[in-house]
């Protein structure tokens, strides 16, 4: 028996599943992006690049893209910075710290729909606990129309997304921090490195693989945050929280323009691929060596 035949049981199942559930749907989506299929009728026509022209000029698509970039930037910044700061405090292995890590991780196991509903009630301007709390502690000027003000609604949703996923990122950073050899830190300390230079010259460069995973995962998550937006705002008010995934959903299942939705999905795939590639290059994950 040839070597590749013997090894087949190891790679074939994974490849098969990947091909069936990722490559096939992607190619099918690409195919439908050249059609005017409505998602219901048994027939459709090939319309060439018409969908690509229509989507690239679509005002709502532009709004969704801009909102999505704002959403991504807000989540990327808050989630990465806060989870890194927490991870730096939570690396040691004591009972209290393990309990804290579990506590921070807890929101991650809640379904996004539940998180969305919980926070919709918290944010509610008349019945919500957030504004009530701010008023009680004398910060009533900080009270906001969190989901109803189109200038801040996308950031209010982003805050919830960060709240729900910071614990997950803490775990990734803690794993990265624990894999840094202690000797390196010790010798740097002996050489007189202060806390800041220790972090920026030793810890951060060696954390690059973990940081790359956190950053790319957070980015992809921010593009896929459909359920949270759907339950909290439905894309409103006035398109201010419409992001690419809700745009695609609306095109496919509410407007019955599957061809257009498939086209937007192709743009979506290309955009995530480019951003993730750039992030990996910028974080120089390939240059780590001990």
């Amino acid at each position: 028996m040839k070597k590749w035949m013997k090894l087949m049981p190891f790679w074939a199942p994974g490849l098969l599943l990947y091909a069936l559930f990722f490559i096939y749907p992607t190619l099918t989506g690409f195919y439908y992006s050249f059609t005017d299929w409505d998602g219901l009728s048994p027939s459709y026509r090939y319309i060439g690049f018409d969908n690509y022209a229509a989507v690239s000029q679509d005002i709502v698509f532009h709004k969704s893209l801009v909102n999505n970039l704002k959403f991504m930037a807000a989540i990327l910044l808050s989630q990465t910075v806060i989870s890194l700061l927490l991870a730096l405090r939570l690396t040691r292995q004591s009972k209290a710290i393990v309990a804290l890590r579990a506590l921070y991780f807890l929101p991650t196991v809640l379904s996004s729909v539940s998180v969305g509903f919980i926070w919709t009630f918290i944010y509610d301007p008349t019945l919500g606990s957030l504004n009530a709390l701010l008023e009680r502690v004398g910060l009533s000027t900080w009270a906001q129309n969190w989901l109803g003000d189109s200038a801040i609604a996308i950031f209010s949703v982003a805050a919830v997304q960060a709240w729900a996923h910071i614990g997950q990122m803490v775990i990734l950073f803690v794993a990265g921090l624990q894999s840094i050899p202690k000797e390196l830190l010790e010798s740097a300390r002996l050489d007189g490195a202060g806390r800041f230079s220790l972090f920026f010259r030793i810890t951060w460069p060696l954390l690059a693989p973990a940081a790359a995973i956190v950053v790319s995962y957070t980015t992809i998550q921010s593009f896929k945050a459909f359920d949270l937006v759907f339950t909290m705002t439905g894309g409103g008010p006035a398109y201010s929280t419409e992001i690419l995934s809700t745009y695609i959903y609306g095109s496919a299942f509410l407007s019955y323009t599957f061809g257009k939705a498939a086209t937007a999905s192709v743009f979506f795939l290309a955009l995530i691929s480019i951003i993730t590639f750039l992030q990996f290059r910028l974080l120089r994950t390939d240059r780590i060596s001990y």
Binding site: T120, Y123, P125, T126, N145, L147, G148, D149
Partner: peptide, 8 residues
């Protein structure tokens, strides 16, 4: 009511 746009 106040903040009507945020009210469900």
């Amino acid at each position: 009511q106040k903040d009507a746009l945020g009210t469900k």
